[in-house]
Amino acid sequence: MTQDLLRLSDVTVEFGPPKRPVRVVEGVSFSVGKGESVGLVGESGSGKSVTSLAIMRLIGGRVAKGRIEFEGRNLLDLPASAMPAIRGRDIAMIFQEPMSSLNPLMTVGDQVAEALLLHGWHDRTARRKRTVEMLDLVGIPNAEGRLGAYPHQFSGGMRQRVMIAMAVACEPKLLIADEPTTALDVTIQAQVLDLMKKVRRELGMAILLISHDLGVIADVCERVVVMYAGRVVEEADIRTILTRPQHPYTQGLLRSVPRRSHEAERLYQIPGSVPPAGSIRQGCPFRDRCELAVPRCAEEMPPMFRFGPSQSAACWVTAAAKGASQAGAAA
């Protein structure tokens, strides 16, 4: 087993007034090993982005419960003043919209250099050399010559490359990427995904990739955590998820997208709509859209059941049918 770099246990995030809280994320547990790439997949309102922001302690809501451990330290116990040192050096993050994440009034070179300066690169010449190195690593052609360029002079794909250069400049141990390619075209997306794999390989960091697109996750990640309405419903290695999903939601999701390997005249459709964040307070959040639902699903949220060495899913019905045992607290 790889040693855990990041471990979330029973994390619950609430928004709104403390008297009537809206639980956007509830009881989320998963871990990311050293150098491992994990995908967090879910639709709107699944809580995947909130979860990632909670790790960075960048959310407006409260982490009401649970632990977020990074290299054994609970980040939630640290004083707020300790977080900036961790962000960027230990954990870095890139976002969907590379234009709004870059300062339009600063040159690209200065922005990468600033990230380095904040984390102890005080020597000017070394910093400049490193900046060029990083821009070169992410595939900015003529990196040296483009240090003085401004973000608007770059295309969307190039800006995302700059963001990646900034994020990985200090060689963080974990890179959190929140829908990094959603705003990009297919051929550019392929370039950026390729770059993320290359950077991970060369710098040996772990990646937590958040996406609604299982295809993107399948491309980059070794393991997948599936979220629905604020809960983790299934977790497994990518091959198992794609070939033998156990949770009815994961199954439905995979059957509802057109796939080369499963061509059909008519797509399977999951009935109903995605519930608004925090609207389900009891039982399994998927039960209203689930073909397998039994009365128990409305009463009690199923725990994670173990279906194989790397796979667990939170479903009463499939667990009973497959004779899966409840996953231990260590899952």
Partner: peptide
């Protein structure tokens, strides 16, 4: 270039 949820892409 289109990423697909397949094992062999």
């Amino acid at each position: 270039a289109a990423p697909e949820p397949e094992v062999d892409t």
